[in-house]
C-alpha cells in the first residue's frame, strides 16, 4: 500500500457507496491500473466539473487518492513544462481545484506541492 493510501486510510473518511458510485470506483481504478490515466485527463476534468470528488461523494474517497497519485505528477509536469500556463489552468481548472484540496488533505510536503496561482484570470468556461 502506498504512503498516500495509508495516509488517506488514517483519516477515516469512510463513506457508504451506492452501486453507481462503486461502478465509478471500478472505472477509475481500472483506468489507473491499466496505465491509461493520461489519455483520460479530459474525462477526469469533466467528472470533477460536475462533482466535488470522483465518486460524487461529499468527502473524498480512496478512489480520489488512487487517481490523485497518478494524476498529480502528470499535471505538475504539464504546468511546469508549459509556456501556456493559463491555457492549461483553463483546460484543467476542475482537476486543479481538486488537487489543491487533496494535496493539503494528504499533507503533501510544501516543496512537493503544486503551487497553484489562484489569482490567474481565466477565460469563462464554455459548457
Amino acid at each position: 500500500m502506498s504512503v498516500l493510501i495509508e495516509k488517506f486510510k488514517s483519516l477515516s473518511l469512510s463513506t457508504e457507496l451506492n452501486k453507481e458510485q462503486l461502478a465509478q470506483a471500478a472505472q477509475w481504478e481500472s483506468v489507473v491500473k491499466s496505465g491509461q490515466i493520461q489519455s483520460h485527463i479530459d474525462e477526469l476534468n469533466l467528472r470533477l466539473r460536475d462533482h466535488s470528488f470522483i465518486l460524487g461523494t461529499l468527502v473524498p474517497t480512496e478512489s480520489d487518492t488512487v487517481v490523485f497519485e497518478s494524476v498529480f505528477p502528470l499535471i505538475k509536469d504539464l504546468i511546469a513544462s508549459s509556456k501556456d500556463v493559463k491555457g492549461h489552468y483553463a483546460k484543467f481548472r476542475h482537476i486543479l481545484r481538486w488537487i489543491a484540496y487533496l494535496q493539503e488533505l494528504l499533507e503533501i510536503p510544501n516543496n512537493d506541492q503544486l503551487e497553484i496561482n489562484s489569482d490567474l484570470e481565466l477565460p469563462r468556461e464554455v459548457i
Partner: peptide, 20 residues
C-alpha cells in the same frame, strides 16, 4: 450516469464489485 470503462460496465451489470 455514464460509464466509459468496460470493466466497470460489466461489474455494474452483474452488480459484482467483489475482488476490486
Amino acid at each position: 450516469f455514464r460509464l466509459f470503462n468496460t470493466n466497470a460496465i460489466l461489474r455494474y451489470a452483474l452488480n459484482d464489485f467483489e475482488g476490486l
